[in-house]
Amino acid sequence: MDIYLKFVLVGLSIALPVGAITVEMTKQGLKNGFFHGWAVGIGGMTIDVLLILALYFGLAQILSLPYVQMPLWIIGAGFLFLLAYDSIKNADQDITLAGEKVNKSIGKTFRNGLLVAVSPGNLVFWVSVFGAVLADSYSSSESSSFIIAALGILTGILLHDIGLLAVISMTRKVMNKQMIKWTSIVAGMLLFGFGCYFLYEFYLDVQHYF
C-alpha cells in the first residue's frame, strides 16, 4: 500500500505541469464538455498502459536506445503540428456551449489523445520512472512491485484529469463561443510550440551522436 500511495503522488506530480495532453484536454473540454476532454486523457493513458506493458516485458533497453528515440522525436512533432493546425484552422468549429447537444465524435477526441501521447518525452518518462522498479520486478520477492507502482501512477494521472476537467466544466458554463474559439487558437499555438521543442530535441540528439 505504501508503494501504491507513493506512486499515486508521483502520478499527480507528473500530470500537474502543463503538457501537450493537458492542452488538448482543456481545449476539448471547453469546446465539447467533460467527456470529450476525458476521452483525450483516456487516449493518453492507453499509450501509457501499452508502454508499461512493454517495459514489464523487457523492452526498456530498446526504448532507451537513441536510434529508437530519435525518429520518434520527428514522429511526435509531426502529430503535434497536425493537431496544432487543426486546432487553429477549426477554432470556431465544433463548439457547443453548456447545455447544448454535442455533435462531435468521442472517437475523434480519443484519437487526439493517442496522437499526443505518442512522443519520445512520454517514452523517456516511463523508462526513467520505472528504471529502478523494473530491476526489482525480476526478482520473485518483488514481482508485484512494478505493477503496483504502475497502477499508482495511473491512478494519480486519472485523479488529475478528473479534477482538471471538473474545473473546466464549471468554467465552460460562463464562456461564450468567441472566448472558446480563442482558447482553441491559443491551444494550437502551444501544441505547435511543443512540436518545435521535439524538433529541437531531435537536433540536439543528432549533434550529440553524429
Rank of each mutant, 00 (worst) to 15 (best):
G58W: 07
L59S: 12
A60W: 00
Q61S: 11
Q61F: 09
Q61M: 15
Q61K: 14
I62G: 07
L63T: 01
L65S: 10
Y67A: 09
Y67S: 15
V68C: 08
Q69R: 07
P71G: 08
L72W: 07
I74H: 14
G76R: 01
G76A: 05
G76I: 00
G76T: 00
G78C: 11
G78F: 00
G78M: 01
L83P: 01
L83G: 00
L83S: 00
A84M: 01
D86G: 02
D86R: 08
K89H: 04
K89S: 04
N90W: 10
A91E: 01
I95D: 06
I95K: 03
I95S: 03
T96R: 10
G99C: 04
G99E: 02
V102R: 12
K104E: 13
K104S: 13
I106M: 11
G107H: 15
G107S: 15
K108Y: 14
K108G: 08
T109I: 06
F110Y: 10
R111W: 15
N112A: 11
L114V: 05
L114H: 10
L114K: 12
L115F: 07
V118Y: 01
V118L: 12
S119A: 08
S119F: 07
P120R: 07
G121K: 06
G121M: 14
L123W: 05
V124D: 08
F125K: 10
W126E: 00
V127A: 13
S128R: 13
S128F: 07
S128K: 15
V129R: 01
V129C: 14
F130V: 09
G131L: 14
V133H: 02
V133N: 05
L134S: 13
L134T: 13
L134K: 06
L134W: 04
L134E: 13
L134C: 08
D136K: 15
S137G: 08
S137T: 08
Y138N: 04
S139M: 14
S139L: 15
S141I: 14
S141G: 15
E142C: 12
E142R: 13
S144H: 14
S145G: 12
I147W: 14
I148N: 03
I148G: 02
L158A: 06
H160C: 11
D161M: 03
I162L: 09
I162Q: 12
I162F: 11
I162C: 12
G163K: 11
G163R: 09
L164C: 13
L165S: 02
L165T: 04
L165P: 04
V167G: 12
I168D: 02
I168W: 05
I168A: 03
S169N: 14
M170C: 07
R172T: 02
R172C: 03
M175D: 09
M175R: 09
